[in-house]
Amino acid sequence: MSAAQSDGGGAPLLRVDDLRATYDTEGGVVRAVDGVSFELRHGEVLAIVGESGSGKTATSLALLDLLPKHIGKVVGGSAEFDGIDLTKLSAADMRAVRGARIAMIFQDALTALNPVHKVGKQISEMIRAHQRVPRSQAWERAVDLLEMVGIPNPRERASNYVHEFSGGMRQRAMIAMAIALEPEILIADEPTTALDVTVQAQVLDVLLGLRERLGMSIILITHDLGVVARAADRVMVMYGGRKIEEQTTEGLFANPQHPYTKGLLRSMPRLDSVIGDRLTQIPGAPPSLVNPSEACRFAPRCDFARPICDEQYPAQVSIGSGSQVACHAAGDPTWETNT
């Protein structure tokens, strides 16, 4: 187990229960988050992995009331943070929480950063919006933050505009902004996708260092299973708007339970493995989230599906030590799901 472990017991810092969020589109109502529950403890890194389009970003946007206006909305469930239900906060109260106590690194760096202000200015103004500090001091803090996330010549670069930054530099500028106020929870949506491995390692070290120093909890959304292996304590796997599996990191890699998770782990290209001609892929397309059926959402693509899978969504079953899986085959020794 990695160093700074969560304190194990005690109340969770964040308890999400049966969260539901939808997007209204011309094609119908997209049930992007369809009954998701999880807990996050103090100082813990919880990774969320899963198919593209499975609702990872929507889950985090729903928590912070950031779903696109008029189109997206939370339609059920709760998210209890330090005694308050985030889904019931007024807009003003949410503004006080967002950024200062729960901050988010957006997947979409370019639209989260303002093109008309210098990068350093955006970070320092963000600091000044929440803290009483002189402009010059906030600017110095912005320069320090840019340096922390590995921007070379941070003093000069603070005066650049976003379009003058490379893809990876933009992503790091956003990380600097998110950690500026030392939040209790950091939601990092694909924080390292645009980063090469050396910078990625450095950024992860910065994030894990903050966890160590401040006891910050991190929700780490990533498709990079190498990053999960390095940084996460626990992993939750999403598919079709739902959580389908949750385990400790070690448990998930050693003993994945859900057929989707197994397929995911098999699809991975690895540097330390032999090169085959083709990568294993999970055949088929992801389910539509408009009027999803009551079947297991993975059934059309699952090699082990039986008739019941088409009839009824599997209940979430506990498989010991806080691990859960939603699959009819789980716990049935006669139902083999290994290829």
């Binding site: 198919e51 299973l225 397929g263 290209p269 083709r278 990568l279 892929q281």
Partner: peptide, 20 residues
Amino acid sequence: DEPVSALDVSVQAQVLNLLV
């Protein structure tokens, strides 16, 4: 330019196989 960096690994495998 970074065509698969935002994709989960199963879709990534799909796109890489497709490119091949």
